[in-house]
Design a protein around this nucleic acid. Structure first.
Lengths: 109, 109
DNA sequence: TTCGGTACCCACATTCTTGTCAGTAGGAGT
DNA sequence: ACTCCTACTGACAAGAATGTGGGTACCGAA
C-alpha cells in the first residue's frame, strides 16, 4: 500500500480490499457488528494474528469501526462504516458471480 | 489456489481474480484482443515474467484465450472469453467504486 | 554476417503475506 | 491462591508472490 497513483478504479479498490481475507471480513460484518471472537468463528481458517492485522488495516482505511467496551473480560466490537458498506455494495455483484460459477472455479486446480 | 470449498462466492471470485495484476489485465482486455507487448505497455510496471505467469493462470481459469499466429516475428493475441467477460461485468461496480473514492484511497498510507 | 523484432523460458533473489506459538492484563468464579 | 475468559502483542518461521537479468527461437533486412 505504498503511496502512488492507481492506474484505474479497480486498481485502487483492490488495494483496499485485496488479500485473502478482507473480502470475507467485509462480508461477515455486513449483517451487523461482531466481536473479535465471533469474527474469528465466522471466518474459519484465519489465525488470530492475521485477523487482527487485517482488522487494523481495514480500520486504518476507514472501512471498519472498532468499539472497545471497558469490561473484564474484554469486549471489542467491529462494525462497518458507511465507507465499508459502500464497498460491500460494490462487491455484491462479484460475490454473486462467484456464487454462480462456484463449481467451475472449484474445478480449476 | 488449492482445491477446496470456498466459504462464499466472494471468496471464490477472489481466488480467480485476486492478486495485484489480474484485475488490471481483465480491464485492459475488455476493449478487445491485445498482443503480448501491447498488454505489457497497457499495464505499466508489470514485468514480462509476471505478465506471462498471470496470463497463463487466467488461461487455465478459462478467463482469457490465447491465439498464436505462426509468423516471424511471433505474434500472440490474448482476448477475453465469455467467462472472462462475465467476470469483468461483475467487476465493473467495484471499479466505479474505486474511481469514486480514489482520492480517499490514495490518502490512506 | 550481424542485427532487429517478438514472445517467450530459466535460475535466482528479494519482498510481501501468512502462519505458529508463546505470553500479557485484569476481574470473576471456585 | 489458582484458573478461566477475552482480546490482544511480539518473536520468529514458512510460504507465496513478485522481480531481475540473462538466454532462446525464428526470419528478414542491412
Amino acid at each position: 500500500m505504498t503511496k502512488r497513483t492507481y492506474i484505474c478504479g479497480l486498481d485502487a479498490a483492490i488495494a483496499v480490499m485485496g488479500g485473502k481475507w478482507k473480502g470475507l471480513l467485509l462480508f461477515s460484518l455486513d449483517e451487523g457488528p461482531l466481536r473479535f471472537g465471533e469474527l474469528r468463528r465466522a471466518v474459519p481458517g484465519i489465525s488470530e494474528r492475521i485477523l487482527i492485522l487485517q482488522l487494523r488495516e481495514m480500520e486504518a482505511s476507514g472501512l471498519v469501526h472498532r468499539e472497545v467496551y471497558h469490561q473484564v473480560p474484554p469486549k471489542v466490537e467491529y462494525s462497518l462504516t458507511e465507507f465499508g458498506r459502500s464497498l460491500n455494495a460494490a462487491l455484491a455483484p462479484l460475490g454473486e458471480w462467484g456464487e454462480e460459477h462456484m463449481e467451475r472455479i472449484e474445478a480449476i486446480p
